[in-house]
């Protein structure tokens, strides 16, 4: 039962990543693209968690935490750049 659920979830997350890629490519404005990248890193964290379940190991969860932190910081940095024209004032 768990392996079937894992297959279904993997398919859903990969389709979500493809839709993020679509929005990232056509996104008419800069905040659209930033939002697409932001969602993409959250979905890649989901993919890493599913990989950990698949391989039955907890090795990759540190990298998931690292991706979460770096993604948040980069989103905030780009938004500050759009808003103020400067990142650190």
């Amino acid at each position: 039962m768990l392996s079937i659920a894992l297959y279904i979830t993997l398919a859903l997350v990969v389709m979500a990543l493809l839709m993020n890629l679509y929005r990232l490519t056509i996104g008419p404005s800069l905040p659209d693209r930033v939002l697409a990248l932001d969602t993409m890193y959250v979905n890649s964290i989901a993919l890493i968690v599913l990989l950990g379940l698949w391989l039955n190991s907890k090795t990759y969860f540190e990298s998931a935490l690292l991706i979460a932190m770096l993604g948040f910081i980069s989103t905030v940095a780009v938004c500050k750049y759009i808003l103020r024209g400067d990142i650190i004032e």
Binding site: L10, A16, M19, T39, A46
Partner: peptide, 11 residues
């Protein structure tokens, strides 16, 4: 998985 899919579908 369904919630992640719906979120990206909305986006």
């Amino acid at each position: 998985g369904i919630f992640v899919f719906i979120g990206s579908l909305g986006m």
